[in-house]
Design a protein around this nucleic acid. Sequence first.
RNA 1: GUUCCCUUCGUCUAGAGGCCUAGGACACGUCCCUUUCACGGAUGAGACACGGGUUCGACUCCCGUAGGGAACGCCA
Length: 502
Amino acid sequence: MENNNSAKSQSDQNSNLNAHKKVRVRFAPSPTGYLHVGGARTALYNFMLAQARGGEFIIRVEDTDEERSQVDFLKSMLADLKWLGLDWSEGPDLNLQDMGPYGPYRQSERKHIYQEYTQILLQKGQAYYCFLTDEELERQREKAVAKGVPFRPESPYRNWTVSQAAEKLKTSPASIRFKNDFGSKDFKFTDKVRGEISFPADMIGDFVLVRSSGMPVYNFVCTIDDALMKITHVFRAEEHLSNTLKQLMIYEALNFTPPEFGHLSIMLGSDRQKLSKRHGATSVFEFKAQGYLPEALVNFMALVGWSSPSGREILPLQDMIQEFDTDRFNPASAVFDTDKCKWMNSQYLRALPELELWHRLEPFLTSAGLKFLGNEAWKAKVLVTYKQNMETLLDGPIVLKPLSETPLVIESEAQEVLTWPKSKALILLMKDEVLKMTSEYPSPDLLDQIMNRAKTELDLKGKFLFMPLRVALIGKAHGTEIKDLFPLLRKDVILSRIESFL
RNA sequence: GUUCCCUUCGUCUAGAGGCCUAGGACACGUCCCUUUCACGGAUGAGACACGGGUUCGACUCCCGUAGGGAACGCCA
């Protein structure tokens, strides 16, 4: 920790030197799947840094893996980012049209740029055409594993000049490898999350820059793009930490100035394994489908691996941006606790104004096939009492169903309540009173009237009074207080339920 | 195997050598509120991975060990 601290103060000096420079950060998703909460969190931190420092947040699409990249994934990722409220000023918009002066922002459209830099490295002798086949490489790897030494490809072509290779190129495909001539030099950098980091150059060999298909690989294009797009800070997942060595080598070979790096901890599932399907929801759109509020998800994700200086936990995005500080990242990997996420969601949900809540609930109510005829005043009244019972929007249909126009069934536990000796008489008494109603919804007085009559005429009290009434109204023995529930039900609904339940 | 990263209650975390008898939040237990279920309130249990140093003093600094993770791909 101490070396971390001294490292951090050093990096602070660096950032002070760069203080005049406008912060430019990027989120660089690979569209090979849906947006994952891990990726979303990385995007969030970058977004917060840009917002906090008045900089730009850029989306760059890393789609150099032609086999796995899909446009539909990209579209859904962008939509999810938007849903979370993480807006970007440069990159593809929702229709995949580029915005901003450093485009194109999809790497598949930047091949000509990468070719240019490939040529430079080739000419400078810092890269070479390599005709090694997969089989030859595999043999080398096996040999290295058997010897217990790290695998570093040894290419017989590493000293060939471009013109030497030209002839063979006509007949054989070739990849282009970076010529790692750094010997045992140490590559050092100050990680904003982890402090001073040092990699020996000889921990890797000559790595591939361009596939034999002509498509350049991640470490190469990432470096070129970060440099060309004038990215000042790269906050990305820890799994990229060791890649930084390759990228640092490329920065040096190309005379680019590296940005500041920060390698974020990984998010794990409850079994401390990498978050995956079997841990439940992992994609942002799944959280959306499960009734999570974007503002709650954002708040929660931010707090897995980062803490606010104030120590507040319920912290809306705007407040987090106010408090954002890159010194407060926790380098240890962290478990995504669904329980706590759900709790946080409930806090945001209950803090929403009732009509706004209803608006957010609507898609869930509709897809559950529920209809509500009440006006806005009624909806607001409903949610004042019912939002306490919801943690996610998905709870809406469950909790609100008793108030809908939908016919209800009596739960088996409630069925028993109806067999109590005076239950039927009580319900008939209620029916009698409801029949006398002149207004659309019952008044509080009416309930008092029913209770009083039940006490005097039937000698009922306690659960023998409350439960049968509740069962007659909503088919359930447990739930909302009768005095809150009763005024929310329309006269005709009450009567039809009494009929069907008797 | 090699290199690099990580290690505070079950979980997320606070902690910058004495403020630590280690604080907060989620989850859990108990009690209160409530003639039900929840909400809410109070309260309890619960952690510095281990071993050596350094220091008057170590959760905090250094070194090991153990455990976890990443990279060593013509994946990103």
